[in-house]
């Protein structure tokens, strides 16, 4: 495991109380794999990634848990030297993270010279190489960010993140808001890079089809917690947590014959005051009375090099049974909590 996150807790201090944006999340990234971090917006994906990078917002702080990178525990105090060289980050809205007053090339060169102590000439050559790597023509290095399309800016941000040959890349929503063709091109670029450079990668997204296309493993978050994780094929093919089953149904599938999308009724809980017990209880069609009192623990089995398929549901034992019900749209129309199958 190149990265292990264990019981991570991140709190934001706000006027409305403490927001527990990440509340006991654990997951691990095996060497050379792409792990997808999925969940609805606001479930704490960005927060988790920023916490790993040690770049939380002003009002955020780590309230508990451990982050271990290559066997060494890291926190705000000792991540700085690792940034760019060992762990790199493509922020959400990378589009706007490029500085509009410098050319894209100058910004990459700056990372190379300031952070990587390359000489000016070597840095320029390397910048051209990086552009080539992400599929941009090197004569676009002289362009300003506004002269790039959204997809090109995203590629440039990836190129910059890869400048110092990190071993772990954290990419936050790298293809959201891009059209399908550009999205696909960028995903293909990421896959090629991962294979060529033996990168390990965490890909944050709310789109499970992106995970299905690119990732080896997936971590599903809900309301600040990890509720299911494991190999993509298993988690998306045979989901064990009702929330994952719901997400799977809510997704359009171009090739399926089903012409219905089934939304999960309701919305995620307020993280300043989350419900006790399983946080999915108010929206879960399979909830039992016990669900609202007893939080379900997630297993942490390891299977060989990767992670095993685990889920945090009290009714995990009945998963196969529940899954057949979950395929029926009528199941999800039941709005009452504590409905039994």
């Amino acid at each position: 495991m190149i990265l292990e996150v264990d019981g991570l807790q991140i709190h934001y201090g706000t006027a409305g109380g403490t927001v527990r944006a990440v509340d006991g999340a654990s997951f691990a990234v095996p060497e050379g794999r792409i792990v997808g971090l999925v969940g609805e917006s606001g479930c704490g994906k960005t927060t988790a990634v920023r916490a790993i990078m040690g770049v939380l917002a002003e009002n955020g702080r780590r309230a508990g848990g451990r982050v271990v990178f290559k066997g060494k525990p890291i926190d705000e105090t000792n991540t700085r030297p690792l940034l760019w060289r060992d762990i790199a980050y493509v922020p959400q809205s990378a589009m706007s993270s490029l500085d509009p007053v410098y050319t894209v090339g100058a910004q990459i060169v700056e990372v190379l010279t300031k952070r990587g102590r390359h000489g000016k000439t070597a840095a320029r050559a390397r910048a051209a190489e990086l552009f080539d790597l992400v599929g941009l023509s090197e004569n676009r290095l002289r362009d300003y960010p506004h002269q790039f399309s959204g997809g090109m800016r995203q590629r440039a941000a990836i190129a910059m993140a890869l400048a110092l040959e990190p071993s772990l890349l954290l990419a936050d929503e790298p293809v959201t808001a891009l059209d399908v063709i550009v999205q696909r091109q960028i995903l293909d670029t990421l896959r090629a890079l991962q294979q060529r450079l033996k990168l390990s990668m965490v890909l944050v997204t709310h789109d499970i089809s992106v995970v299905a296309y690119l990732c080896d493993e997936v971590v599903v978050m809900y309301a600040g917690q990890v509720i299911e994780s494991g190999p993509v094929r298993e988690v998306l093919g045979r989901p064990r947590h009702p929330y994952t089953m719901g997400l799977r149904n809510a997704f359009p599938d171009l090739m399926s014959d089903a012409l219905e999308l089934v939304p999960i009724a309701g919305s995620p809980p307020d993280l300043a005051d989350p419900p006790p017990g399983c946080r999915f209880t108010p929206r879960c069609p399979f909830a039992l009375a016990a669900c609202s009192t007893r939080p379900a623990a997630i297993g942490s089995d390891r299977a060989g090099a990767g992670n095993a398929h685990v889920s945090a549901c009290l009714r995990d034992g009945e998963a196969d049974h529940l899954r057949t019900f979950a395929l029926d749209p009528v199941t999800w129309q039941r709005s009452s909590a504590y409905a039994t199958s």
Binding site: V180, I181, Q183, R184, L187, D207, I208, S209, V210, A212, Y213, V232, R233, L236, G237, R248, F251, D253, L254, M255
Partner: peptide, 9 residues
């Protein structure tokens, strides 16, 4: 180009 939510596709 449309991504499919099924890893087996």
């Amino acid at each position: 180009a449309v991504p499919v939510p099924d890893p087996d596709q």
